[in-house]
Amino acid sequence: MKLSDVREILSASVMCGEERLSEEVLSVCGSDLMSDVLAFVKDQSVLLTGLMNQQVVRTAEMMDMKCIVFVRGKTPEPDVVTLANQRGLTVMSTMHRMYEACGRLYSGGLV
């Protein structure tokens, strides 16, 4: 699946990284707890979260992820998006809740 498919499945708006939407992603991690994200290494490429601070970006960066999707219509402060963009991460925002966003991506083939 490409990041452009993630955007479509989640009806998400892209906050940065429009030029990287052709990148392939294989798996997703959904969590508001960053240490949980750090605890389970499985080449996750997309992080779904309701948390909106710089540490979300740092965590995604440490785990070599490609994309952060903020759920429940949350939009982070511009400096969070700027940091993500500097680190080569695509950032999206979806109106779906965490559970539904995970379900939609799982049904779409991401594990």
Partner: peptide
Amino acid sequence: EQGFGAGMGLPNMKRY
């Protein structure tokens, strides 16, 4: 509330 402090930091460091 910032996504840390769940008691996973040191265990993660030890694990990896």
